[in-house]
């Protein structure tokens, strides 16, 4: 009897603790701090959009959007100035198209070799090497373009200019090659072994298995890797600045000097444009365009990954 009376206060104490779920302030503070860190990413995006929009709007108060989007002359610094962005977009497209033409076939063939044909030993050496090469800074590719690719092109095509889109396209292609190879390899390896075994059991050769079974099954991942590489090529800066020059130009050939959107941004920022001026604002408008294009490509690649993924268990 008296023992329960003695114990009661202790017991009720514990019960109160459990039932009321006391807030642990330390725990709460830590969790809030962590959540705050996670919010930084949202804030970053918001800041990017706010800054680009703000400067963009003040730009469009001086220049009509129609002139910017459809104009074919980009002369922002000299009088008479003209702000048609198409030459810069064209330059970017030219380099990206050339780079894709080089990187996609080579990258895909490498991915097929690595995932379908290479022995374990070859694979475990080539893959890390490719990953290492993917980490080479882009300025190194710029060096490669100027000191190796352009002189080589000059001996083959004597009429080519010192700065030209061809050289830029080649080095950007080489640059995104490891990315396509490793990402596509991952996608092809995710295709279950049973599909291959089924194809072989029906008498298909390795070529038929690869092109008619494995590739279609891993296509979403392969396409996503292409899009990511293209988006990377569009945003690529240093190599094209060094290789392709600074002449906004809507040339149809790869042999002339052009200017990409990214190269224009570098050119202006090296010249130390005064804040608030029209030249300074063009930086943000061009960057906004770049941001929107790459964002669309990235979202598209994620969408393809999710929408067209063949799920195997």
């Amino acid at each position: 009897m008296y023992s329960t009376a003695l114990n009661r206060p202790v017991l009720t104490d514990t019960f109160i603790n459990i039932n009321k779920r006391t807030i642990r302030w330390g725990e709460f503070l830590i969790q809030s701090g962590l959540a705050l860190c996670a919010l930084i990413s949202i804030i970053t995006t918001a800041v990017i959009i706010i800054i680009l929009c703000k400067e963009g709007f003040s730009f469009f108060q001086h220049i009509a959007p129609a002139e910017f989007f459809f104009g074919t002359r980009w002369v922002p610094l000299l009088e008479p100035s003209s702000f048609g962005v198409l030459p810069l977009v064209w330059g970017t497209l030219l380099v990206t198209f050339g780079a894709a033409l080089i990187a996609i076939p080579i990258g895909l063939a490498s991915a097929i070799y690595l995932s379908e044909y290479a022995s374990h030993k070859v694979r475990s050496t080539v893959k890390p090497v490719l990953e290492l090469l993917a980490g080479i800074p882009t300025v190194v590719y710029g060096y490669f373009a100027l000191t190796f690719v352009t002189p080589l092109l000059k001996t083959i095509i004597p009429g080519i200019q010192v700065f030209n889109a061809f050289s830029g396209a080649i080095v950007v292609g080489i640059m995104v090659l490891p990315m396509i190879a490793t990402l596509s390899d991952n996608a092809l390896r995710a295709v279950p072994q049973t599909l291959r075994q089924g194809a072989y059991a029906l008498g298909a050769t390795s070529y038929e298995t690869t092109t008619q079974v494995v590739l279609p099954a891993g296509l979403s991942g392969v396409m996503a890797s292409f899009l990511l590489a293209i988006s990377r090529a569009i945003g690529e800066t240093m190599a094209v600045t060094l290789a392709a020059g600074a002449t906004p130009n809507m040339s149809l050939t790869f042999l002339e000097s052009i200017q990409t959107m990214t190269a224009y941004i570098v050119q202006i920022s090296l010249g130390d444009a005064p804040a608030g001026g029209l030249a300074y604002q063009t930086l943000f408008v061009v960057a906004a365009l770049l941001f929107i294009i790459t964002l669309m490509l990235n979202v598209l690649s994620q969408w393809i990954l999710n929408r067209y993924r063949e799920a195997y268990d």
Binding site: I51, E236, T237, L290, T294, L295, Q302
Partner: peptide
Amino acid sequence: SNLAGVPSIVYGII
């Protein structure tokens, strides 16, 4: 995941 794909030069401008 979208921020990871923003070109580095855009970060430079920001």
